[in-house]
Design a protein around this nucleic acid. Structure first.
Lengths: 185, 185
DNA sequence: GTCTATAGAGTGATAGAC
DNA sequence: GTCTATCACTCTATAGAC
């Protein structure tokens, strides 16, 4: 249900009223409660699960399984730029992490960010970094992406996100970073 | 009104109901509407203004006026760590930037982040960096702080914020960064 | 008939304004 | 405290598929 995702993304959990959801999806309350007997909370949970599945398939699994970890990391940055529309689209899970109902979804929110950070760090270890440095850089990247999305929205300039992604990609082991490491003593 | 700030910080704009605000501040609705004739929106606006004033006094003004820009930047990191309680406290303005009512407060939100980024970049220029690099690093730091706060809350680990602040301080021209620059060709 | 999807009036509770 | 609007939600009725 892409419309459902967008209502929550644009209005947050409390802002996404059932009347808004109904208007946007074209579904009456009967249909909504037929598909989601648990009401609004179940709708939001299914949205979080859908997003998590997208990232699992497009980002986390490649980071885990790709025999070339540096290529997987580069692909991650590309997928991220695509998903967030170069900074024009917010991260719904980040929005939920800050909203008043965050405790109800703490598991999904924690899982998303923890998995991202961990699979990214592991890919970096496989590409030759030591574990401590890898965790540090992974946190830098995942946090940097979130912060850039907030900042881009706050100052209404998607360019903030583009510049941030470029910096983070270099730190994450883009080509320039590899070359840089190779020239170190 | 520190209680008012905390209600909005903990519950967001939509989550901070008048009954919650009344309970926390000990004020009845009559008193609240006497102090804030504009209702909830005026309460939130005054909270944003109060936070902006704190940062203006403790962060932005020193960044602008201190004859030693590197000391001002170091003081900024210290004030930031103190203000956000080493990652245990969220940024209210970041929360407002993502909530459904964000458009009503767009001016204050934009002003806060734009001023922080700009005064920080200018301090870096005064400490010897070129303007383009300074803006890039300033965006990295201000965005990195926001992202670290979100990530720290999402995975329930304030250590994320502490590690991020340490990385960002180095990039911003902490002592180690200066030493590093001095040893470059 | 049964099952699934839908519509929408109506519920009590609570919101913010005054 | 009183007001009205709106909230999430329930329930009954009904449509067509099989």
């Amino acid at each position: 249900m892409p419309d459902l995702i967008e209502v929550f993304r644009e209005h947050g959990y409390e802002g996404a009223s059932l009347s808004l959801i109904g208007a946007r999806t074209g579904l009456g309350k009967g249909s909504l409660y037929h598909f989601f007997p648990g009401g609004k909370e179940e709708m939001a949970a299914s949205v979080l699960a859908e997003i998590d599945a997208w990232f699992e398939h497009r980002v986390f699994a490649p980071l885990r399984g790709d025999p070339d970890p540096e290529a997987a990391i580069a692909a991650m940055f590309q997928a991220t730029d695509l998903y967030f529309r170069s900074g024009a689209r917010m991260c719904l899970i980040g929005i939920f992490a800050l909203c008043d109902a965050r405790d109800r979804f703490a598991g999904a929110i924690h899982g998303y960010f923890a998995t991202w950070t961990q699979t990214l760090a592991e890919a970096m270890v496989r590409s030759g970094r030591n574990p401590g440095e890898a965790r540090d850089i992974a946190e830098d990247i995942v946090g940097g992406i979130q912060g850039a999305l907030v900042l881009a929205r706050a100052v209404n300039d998607p360019g903030v996100f583009a510049r941030a992604l470029r910096r983070l990609a270099v730190r994450g082991g883009g080509l320039s970073s590899v070359r840089h490491r190779d020239t170190q003593p």
